[in-house]
């Protein structure tokens, strides 16, 4: 343990802790989705973080650096895994809340605020280093965009398939 404490820095501990905690939390959730849906949800989380990190953190934008150096390291890759359980938790929560328009709107805003706070914690831990005057608040529209797209995935891929299956079962009964 002391050996690990010597070789790992705070940002690396942050990535490990959040990843392990995230994956542990989702094991406690009831399995409401099929295996391909779960896999797609993890890929959605991984895709968005890879897309934005590989675009906004690279030239010509260079708005931020991930971890200790501007170059791609194994810890950058592990930091992408850190986000994947949260897509699953976000979509699991959607199945629980009352699906009024206002309810879903408030849910997305709530998650965007939570995401900004989490990114703030990651920034404090040294996972992100902002450049060129980029600030934490500028990530807010990115989160709103990503959360809304994930919501579209839920609406068109999870919800509609579940509805069509239940109507098929009703017809066959």
């Amino acid at each position: 343990m002391s050996y690990l404490a010597e070789i790992l820095e705070i940002n690396e501990w942050f990535i490990l802790t959040v990843s392990i905690a995230g994956f542990f939390v989702i094991t406690l959730f009831p399995r409401k989705f099929t295996r391909p849906q779960r896999l797609t949800m993890f890929l959605i989380g991984f895709y968005f973080v890879t897309l934005f990190d590989q675009t906004l953190a690279k030239p010509p934008f260079n708005y931020y650096d991930v971890n200790d150096s501007g170059s791609f390291t194994i810890w950058d890759l592990l930091s992408y895994f850190m986000y994947t359980p949260f897509t699953y938790i976000y979509l699991s929560g959607l199945t629980v809340i009352r699906k009024t328009r206002l309810g879903v709107f408030a849910y997305v805003i709530g998650w965007a605020v939570f995401s900004i706070l989490s990114e703030g914690a990651a920034w404090l831990a040294g996972v992100y280093h902002y450049n060129k005057g980029y600030t934490l608040l500028q990530s807010f529209p990115v989160y709103l965009f990503v959360l809304s797209l994930t919501l579209l995935y839920y609406h068109y891929f999870v919800n509609q398939i579940a509805k069509s299956r239940s109507s098929f079962r009703q017809r066959s009964n």
Partner: peptide, 16 residues
């Protein structure tokens, strides 16, 4: 459409 989305996401991640 699930296969379509899976392939798009997986190939994008691998390429990136």
């Amino acid at each position: 459409k699930e296969e379509w989305l899976f392939l798009f996401l997986a190939s994008s991640i691998i390429i990136m």
